[in-house]
Design a binder for these strands. Structure first.
Ligand SMILES: Cc1cn([C@H]2C[C@H](O)[C@@H](COP(=O)(O)OP(=O)(O)OP(=O)(O)O)O2)c(=O)[nH]c1=O
Ligand SMILES: [Mg+2]
Length: 591
DNA sequence: GGGCGATGTTTTT
DNA sequence: TTCCAAAAAACATCGCCC
């Protein structure tokens, strides 16, 4: 009786299977607030598609423009090549959270299991046969698979397994990138150059290592760049390997019939838009790229275009410290001011706890709420000093609450701290904020009650400074003494005209999309870390870099790169070898 | 035409 | 009977102020 009513084998599914599942989901959810909100969003997407379609229609009537655009595209196609000099691997654990839980409960192995309570984080493959998926609400999962067993989430457990996993992989690429606990992207080029091993054999051996060390299976994909390797890892999941050979034709073939939704960075919404315009596979994009060129922003266009041609980043970017720490909770709706404030207090405490254990301080706070109708709103504010104290955060949080003018029930409240710096390592303020601070202070203006539309920035002066860990004086002292005023202004002068255009610039300066050999055109030398920063005349990149350089005192190299979606960073800090730094990294993973 | 800060959207695990 | 997470990041867009 442990059989699905109808089987669902992912995209290999019989149509009826998939349809029936959709039906069950729809029946179970229709009418809810959530459902209504989703419907609204869908409508908005449709509107957007309509607008784009109209733009396209007018484009189609302009032969001249078509000719021009197609020529631009053709040139682009001629310009790039699919670089196969490097070899990447993507490792991804199978049904990770559940797999970790099953370690402790092997007797459940053949039963449908999911981790999560209200929402399923992930489900094992038994449950997936019933249509159960990540991010699905629990009650729907139950409807699809009445016998499913839910196990609550034990994050710490997954972190420690992840540690083992990452430690193994680091032997093959010490700079590996990762977007989550259960996956890692490695550039194996150097390792393979040394060992001369066959990539497939190497990766199978690594998978065995992982299995031996964790008792869990991982899948792996191999290809000439990060994106291809990631896509490949899904092919023979679970517990499988797929290699895309190191040749342009292999890459092109591999991508040809791939639904664009699979391209990392193209999610639900973009898929809807694209499919609304009749783009469904990478081939569609290749064939009709000119159409995308006229309706998308340059950035989006380039990234879709190059992805579909298999052109993506094949070198590592420097590790970046975390930009933000946040804490949010969903609860049964509340609607009184008092309740809101209590929640802020609670969340502030949680956030402070987290920040302190990470030894971080921050000076930009954001309050996030979700209404009972699933609308999300946020208010944020630049603090006058760095903090990680619960009471301090709560005070600011409540100020934001006031500004928010809540007059309807909410189901979620969260706080996010950004502009982080290390608690220990002096709270050096960033160049940009430092200068602005100065202006603010010299004006002597104290905007006590920031009005929402009055000023664009909510300058809130803390009415209770005593909680602040670092005294104002300390903060004054910590101004960028590393930087003389002369140097500072010279940096400011270096800041060129921005490049943030909505229209495609004709500057065909063959952007060295991803792929290894990047010549550095417009770059500056950072006065702090003394490294070249390829900022492409984009001062945002430069500023950000200097910001980080000052606040952390870590050395960071920014590499900007138009063709790649930059969400690809390494979110997770991984224990490195056994040096002094390893200590800190482990610390990061600990609790 | 910027730049900048706040806010909202989209994606990923 | 009802029921849809949490954390982090990158982009896009808007309004204001030069
Ligand atoms: C997709 C997703 C994953 N996760 C967690 C649970 C997953 O076990 C973990 C890794 O995500 P995934 O690697 O996407 O999924 P998975 O490892 O569970 O399954 P697969 O065999 O297909 O790789 O991240 C969430 O919490 N929410 C999500 O929406
Ligand atoms: Mg996985």
């Amino acid at each position: 009786m442990n059989e699905p009513i109808f089987h669902y084998y992912g995209n290999k599914a019989g149509v009826e299977g998939a349809d029936q599942i959709k039906q069950v989901i729809d029946d179970a959810t229709r009418g809810s607030e959530y459902y209504k909100r989703q419907q609204e969003k869908r409508q908005q997407v449709l509107q957007k598609v309509n607008k784009m379609q109209m733009e396209l229609d007018s484009y189609k009537n302009n032969e001249q423009k078509i000719k021009e655009t197609k020529e631009i595209i053709q040139n682009k196609v001629k310009e790039f090549q699919i670089n196969t000099d490097r070899i990447w691997a993507h490792f991804d654990m199978d049904m990770f959270y559940v797999a970790c839980e099953l370690l402790d409960k092997p007797e459940l192995k053949d039963k449908p299991v999911a981790v999560g309570q209200t929402i399923v984080s992930t489900a094992n493959y038994v449950a997936r046969k019933f249509g159960v998926r990540s991010a699905m609400p629990g009650f729907v999962a139950k409807k699809l698979c009445p016998e499913i067993i839910f196990i609550p989430c034990h994050f710490e457990k997954y972190k420690s397994v992840s540690n083992i996993f990452m430690t193994i992989l680091k032997k093959y690429d010490d700079n590996l990138e990762s977007m989550g606990l259960d996956e890692a992207n490695l550039d194996l080029t150097e390792y393979i150059n040394n060992s001369q091993e066959d990539p497939a054999i190497l990766c199978e051996n690594i998978r065995k290592d992982i299995l031996l060390a964790t008792q869990l299976t991982a899948s792996c994909g191999v290809g000439p760049n990060k994106m291809i390797a990631k896509l490949a890892s899904e092919i023979n999941k679970p517990n499988g390997l797929h290699v895309v050979e190191q040749s342009a034709t292999a890459v092109l073939n591999f991508l040809e019939k791939l639904p664009i939704r699979k391209i990392p960075g193209i999610g639900n919404i973009t898929e809807q838009i694209l499919s609304g315009l009749n783009f469904n596979t990478c081939k569609d994009v290749r064939d009709r790229a000119d159409e995308l060129y006229v309706i998308f922003t340059p950035k989006t266009f380039e990234y879709i275009f190059y992805s579909c041609w298999g052109v993506a980043r094949n070198y590592h970017v420097e590790f970046e410290d975390q930009h933000s720490i946040s804490c949010q909770r969903t609860f049964s709706s509340i609607s009184t001011q008092r309740e809101f404030e209590d929640k802020v207090d609670y969340i502030a405490e949680k956030l402070a706890e987290e920040m302190q254990s990470e030894e971080k301080v921050g000076n930009h706070l954001t309050l996030i709420i979700k209404t009972s109708k699933f609308e999300i709103r946020s208010k944020s504010l630049q603090l006058n000093q760095y903090t990680n104290q619960a009471k301090q955060i709560a005070i600011y949080g409540k100020q934001l609450l006031k500004i928010m003018q809540l007059d309807e029930p909410i189901r979620l409240l969260g706080l996010k701290m950004s502009s982080l710096a290390n608690e220990k390592q002096i709270q050096k303020q960033s160049i940009s904020t430092y200068f602005k601070r100065q202006i603010d202070k010299s004006s002597g203006q104290e905007n006590l009650v920031p009005s929402i539309k009055g000023s664009k920035s909510h300058q809130i002066t803390e009415e209770n400074d005593s909680f602040n860990k670092m005294s104002l004086q300390q903060q004054e002292q910590s101004k960028p003494d590393i930087l003389s005023d002369d140097e500072a202004s010279s940096i400011s002068n270096q800041i060129l005209s921005g490049v943030n255009s909505k229209s495609h610039q004709s500057q065909q300066q063959q952007q060295q999309y991803q792929q290894k050999q990047q010549a550095q055109p417009k770059s500056f030398r950072c006065p702090i870390c003394n490294k070249e920063i390829d900022c492409k005349g984009n001062n945002t990149v430069l500023n950000k870099h200097i910001d980080r350089c000052i606040t952390q005192q870590n050395v960071i190299v920014e590499q900007s790169d138009e063709s790649n979606r930059n969400f690809s960073g390494s979110k997770i800090k991984v224990p490195s070898k056994i040096d002094s730094k390893a200590q800190k990294s482990f610390n990061f993973f600990k609790k």
